[in-house]
Amino acid sequence: MQSHAAGDSSKFLNLRSLSGLEGLRFSAKRRIEGAYSGRHIARKQGGAGEFADYREYSPGDDLRRLDWRILARTGKTFLKLHQDETNLACTMLIDSSGSMGFAGYQQKGDDSKLAWCQFFTTALSHLILTGRDHVGLAVSEQKECPYFPPSCLPQQRGLIHESIANMVPRGSTNLAHSLDSLFMQVRRRGVLMVLSDFLDADLDPMLSSLRKFRTRGWEVIAMHIVHPDELSLPKGRAFRFLGMEGELPVAAQVNELREAYEGRFERHQASVRTGLLSVGCDFHSILTSTHYMDVLKQFLIKRSG
């Protein structure tokens, strides 16, 4: 961590806290396709790397992999298979819509869902880069989707961290559009991590977009970010609720709506979970009341295991 300290000035990066997680590495659950050799199991089996298995020769196979010794002894043609190892390319897509700026009914600015994502992605990108894997960043905004392709160049850390630090919640959620835009820009398969509150009016377009990634062989990790205050309505009698994505305000007596709201939010959580799992995502529901370091630790333990 010290080696990168000189270039890290993000307020969301706490190197002292991350020092405890240096031993953990972010790993993909599936075989991946990297540009360089690394410590992650690659999708293809090549002539180098660790021996994996034998296979009968079939016409068209690379003759360089033929085991000549077996051929000499037995007269049969077998190929020696070796497992290639490659590096990991993780692209983090962060939802920066207005609803991600929700910091609870008490409106503590540094308690917003986006802030939590900023801390989390900063720390995770730092650890991935430390493991000499590639990290990319895409930001889901209302109309645009700025994209920083995965890289492990020295300047990538600063670029990613700066981009994360500069994110501001605004506009409405349009995750499907962002995913489609990202899909058109990515060149190589890797790991896509989506951090969002998934408060889209319609989840189906988003799920369709994610299905494209999955079809192409991407590993998709979906992190559903929920603020604890979102689980229920505030205590009190009447409120004038202000929308965070440009919606019209609405006045309501919350006592009559409380139970119905809680039921509605539970249904939303359930539908997000069901949808994402059906697409084949690795789904995580996260309450922002849980410290990002704890979440990161648990996440990495699962991943490295």
């Binding site: 009447a238 004038r240 609720f241 929308g243 919606e247 709506l257 119905a260 709201y261 939010f265």
Partner: peptide, 22 residues
């Protein structure tokens, strides 16, 4: 009738649904 306090909420679309029903 209580004077409402203005507060932001991310899930306002849910409230729209519920209020519309009720």
């Amino acid at each position: 009738k209580p004077k409402p306090t203005a507060i932001p909420i991310s899930t306002i679309s849910f409230l729209y649904e519920l209020i519309q029903q009720r």
